[in-house]
Structure formats: C-alpha cells, structure tokens
Amino acid sequence: MMKTEEVIEQERRYLLHIYERPPFVLEKGNGMRLFDQEGNRYLDFVSGISVNAFGYGNFEIIKTIEQQAARLIHCSNLFYSIPQVELGRLLAQNSFADKVFFCNSGAEAIEAAIKFARRWGDTQGRRDRRPRYGIVTMTGSFHGRTYGALSATGQPKFQKGFGPLLPGFTIAEFNDLEAVEKAIKEDTCAILVEPLQAEGGVNVSSREFLQGLRHLCDQRGLLLVFDEIQFG
C-alpha cells in the first residue's frame, strides 16, 4: 500500500489538480466517521458535499447495491427497467412533482432545468411572437461549474477566466422581491433560486420571498425553478 506522501505525489503527477485537499488519505468509513491510512478518525460533516447523508457501511444500502449489481448495473435511460420506474414513482408521490428526470449530478440537473425552461420559453415565445429565453438568478448563488450552470451563478469569482459566458441571465438581489420584479424583462421565461444558498454563505431565503416569487411567476407567466441540490 502506498504511503500518504506517495499518494499525494501520485495525485499531483497524474490527476488534474482542481481542488486543494487536506493532507491525508481516506481509507474507509463507518457510520458518521471516516478513517485515514494512518488510523486517524474524522467526524464527517461534509457528507459528499451535502448529498450523502446516510453514512458509511450501511448494511441495507450495501445489500441493495450488491443485489442490483448482480442483476443489472447500467443499461442507460434508453430502456425500461423496474428500479427506475419504482424510484420515479416514489419521488413523484412524495414531492410536488408530477414527473422526474434523472441526472448524474447537481450541475447536470441545473443544465437540464435551463434547457427545459428555454424550451418552454421558445414554445411560449412563438405563440406570443416574441423571444423568451431570459432567466433571472440571484446574487450569491452557486449553480455548478458546467457552462450553463456557471453562467447562471451570481458570484463573479467562480466565473473569472471562463468568459464569454452564456448570455440571457440577469442577476437580482437575493431575498429582495422588488429587485427580482425589476429584473424581469420581455424575454424572461424563468426565475432560478436556491431556497438555501450554501456556497454563497448559508443564506436562507425568507418564506415571504419564496411565496412572493411563486405569486410573481404566476402573475407574469414565468417558470419558477428551485435549485435544491444542497438544500434537499
């Protein structure tokens, strides 16, 4: 087994260095705790960047993965499969949604949401005889590092060096309904908001703000898109 220093050196040699990592190598996990190669224990407050809250070594999860892997690992969404349908039904019956669209990551979900919104806006625009592709997003927001998601993000520090960005996004002040209303233009098709901003500094939207956005979208004929990747 490679020592910690060797792993770090090999990572720097063979992997594209994107993130600054702490100087230890994780080896295993159990429950809420992680263990590195040298036996040090850590209490995991990261949880896979807020998307893996089930802990490590969960027997039921391991058993389910093993059983499914023995039957069918991956066949893409080009084919019907029972687990896919069952999960879709479970999500739809226990959320606001009528239907679901499965993605591989949060950024991919946002890219899909942008495309859905603009596709809907294109249909509405042809009916109204005016283009509708604009999306209002918020200051302090973070929607991902892919191109569309990055363009929608309301923090210039993440966008520096990647211009020109995808056009059609207008940034409004977070938690300020009046500012959002002023940001709506003739070509606007949707409003994109995080109910809880994480990368922006753990900023919580008020109930009045979210309810106001819902009313505003209903009134102006816009889509309201929630980015709940970390909040959910």
Score class of each variant (00 low, 15 high):
A53T: 10
E178Q: 06
E199G: 02
K115F: 08
A113N: 04
T146V: 02
G144M: 03
F24D: 08
E27H: 09
L91Q: 04
E178K: 12
L196H: 08
V25W: 07
R207V: 14
K182A: 12
P156V: 00
V7P: 01
L216H: 05
P195N: 05
Q211S: 14
I62S: 10
N30M: 13
E228L: 15
S95M: 01
Y133A: 02
M2W: 14
E173Q: 13
I82M: 11
I229M: 10
D44I: 03
I82D: 10
Y42W: 07
V100P: 09
T153H: 05
L222N: 00
S105D: 14
G154S: 11
T188L: 08
V46N: 13
Q37L: 15
L34K: 04
M1E: 06
E186M: 11
A172K: 05
L26P: 07
N30C: 02
H17P: 01
A53Y: 05
A152V: 06
G39V: 00
F59N: 10
L223P: 00
F59P: 03
E11L: 13
I18F: 03
F79A: 07
H143M: 03
Y147I: 00
L166K: 08
R89M: 02
R130K: 15
R129S: 11
A69G: 00
P167I: 04
Y19S: 10
A107P: 00
E27G: 00
N58E: 11
F162Q: 07
L213W: 07
F142I: 03
D36W: 00
Q124S: 03
D218Q: 14
D227I: 08
R12K: 10
T123L: 14
Q67W: 13
P22E: 06
D36C: 07
S206C: 02
V193G: 06
S95E: 13
E178W: 01
E173K: 12
C189D: 05
E111N: 05
T153G: 08
Y42I: 01
E9H: 11
L16G: 07
L43D: 09
P23R: 03
T137H: 07
E181R: 15
A113I: 02
E194Q: 14
L16V: 14
F116Q: 03
V180E: 10
T170H: 03
K63S: 12
G125H: 09
Y80Q: 07
A117E: 00
A107G: 15
F54H: 10
Q68N: 07
A69D: 14
I114F: 12
Q155D: 04
M32K: 15
F174E: 01
L43V: 03
G125I: 08
P23K: 01
N52H: 15
H17Y: 05
P83H: 01
S206L: 04
H74Q: 04
I65C: 13
G201F: 10
R33V: 05
I171C: 13
Y133C: 05
P164Y: 08
Q37P: 02
I8G: 02
L222E: 05
L26W: 15
G88F: 12
A109F: 05
